[in-house]
Simulated assay, not measured.
Amino acid sequence: MEYKIGKDARCAVIGYGSWATAIVGLLAANEARVGWYVRNPEVLEGLRSEGRNPRYLADLEFDMERIAVSDDLNEVVRGADVVILAAPSAYLKDFLAPLTESLADKFVVSAIKGIIPGDCYKTVVEYIHDEYGLPYKQLGLVTGPSHAEEVSRGKLTYLTVVCTDPENAQVIGRKFAAPYIKLSYSTDLYGVEYAAILKNIYALAVGIAVGLGYGDNFLAVLIANGAGEVKRFLDESYPDARETLVSAYVGDLLVTCYSVHSRNRRLGLLIGHGCTVRSALNEMTMVAEGYFAADCIRHINTRHRVEMPIAEMVYKVLYQGASPRRSMKELIPKLI
């Protein structure tokens, strides 16, 4: 049986970080009313009293007549047809823990580029499918090279909407439409989601290399080899007639590796500069998804045995206490 999103479907956003805040800004420009689940008391009060998120993208001002902000998850979900997940993957279980409202008639969109850490080793889409019984036809992604800081300032951005049904993708796309947003569409739920997760690992590797003093010539080689690892992993784990030389795959990889806004690059940079992994994590003000992804992808790859020397190097540095400098030197002969 087909599942079609209605053209007047109501949207709600789960999360209060920078990306969630930027997404609410986009939706509020197109929708009469947007639900927003915010469990942080400081952020909730700031939105209600000043129409701003005091912790993330504080310059972005909201028309609160168009936003129904609440710390009651069930109330927010109950009033929505499309639920957009935009909390860090490491905390998604906690965010959804109070949920008793059924998702059976909802369409759930992940805007999260991370993997559920712990013992399940699942992507967000896989987790929602398994834990809440939603078929993949009721699951989608919004992704692409899209730092929240630039989206909130109206910088030209390319987003990709992924759904198994192209018509549903188009409906979701219209809700994210803006003069500075260029939209493309895909049905490759598996490939796009895993590419968005893997690129965080390679951004960490780039940050480590920069911190160690390697130059642009080497970084280009490192990123090119990272793109090759992404393609090999996708081709082996879920073969499909996908084209990875487009923005949702390689574009997202490039911006995460090069941008000053990249949390994962920043984490790698701190480690390359000599910080311990623990102290670098403590210095981060936002979640670097690549830290969890490195462990989860290594676990998943034990089934597929794809050659991924960069991802392996990052894992050893993060989780086995390997020397970043020595590990990078050992990696160099493995690159082409």
Score class of each variant (00 low, 15 high):
Asn30Asp: 10
Ala288Arg: 13
Gly46Glu: 10
Val108Glu: 06
Gly268Arg: 03
Asn53Gly: 08
Glu61Met: 15
Leu134Ala: 15
Leu85Gln: 08
Ala248Gly: 01
Ile208Leu: 02
Gly173Trp: 03
Leu281Gln: 13
Tyr91Pro: 00
Val230Ser: 07
Ala12Arg: 01
Gly290Asn: 03
Ser184Arg: 12
Arg242Thr: 07
Leu139Tyr: 08
Tyr202Met: 13
Thr285Tyr: 02
Cys163Asp: 06
Met313Arg: 01
Arg298Met: 01
Val76Gln: 05
Leu57Gln: 09
Pro166Gly: 03
Glu236Ser: 11
Asp119Gln: 14
Ser49Leu: 15
Arg33Glu: 14
Leu96Gly: 00
Val287Ser: 07
Asp130Lys: 11
Val260Thr: 11
Asn40Val: 09
Gln170Phe: 13
His304Met: 09
Ala9Pro: 11
Pro309His: 11
Glu167Asn: 09
Cys275Asn: 12
Tyr136Asp: 12
Tyr136Phe: 15
Asn200Ala: 13
Val210Lys: 12
Val142Leu: 09
Cys11Ile: 09
Asn74Asp: 15
Val108Phe: 10
Glu45Arg: 14
Gly25Phe: 11
Glu289Ser: 01
Ile336Gly: 11
Lys316Ser: 13
Pro324Lys: 06
Phe292Trp: 11
Leu204Glu: 08
Ala169Cys: 00
Tyr202Phe: 15
Val171Phe: 03
Arg174Phe: 06
Ile181Ala: 03
Arg266Gln: 03
Ile14Thr: 05
Tyr249Ser: 02
Tyr136Pro: 08
Asp295Tyr: 09
Gly272Leu: 12
Gly226Val: 02
Ile23Asn: 07
Met328Cys: 06
Gly15Asn: 08
Thr302Cys: 04
Ala227Arg: 10
Tyr180His: 13
Thr123Asn: 00
Arg78His: 10
Gly140Thr: 08
Ala9Thr: 05
Glu131Trp: 00
Ser49Glu: 15
Thr100Gly: 05
Gly118Arg: 03
Lys7Arg: 15
Ile5Asp: 12
Ala220Val: 09
Glu65Met: 14
His129Thr: 13
Ala97Tyr: 10
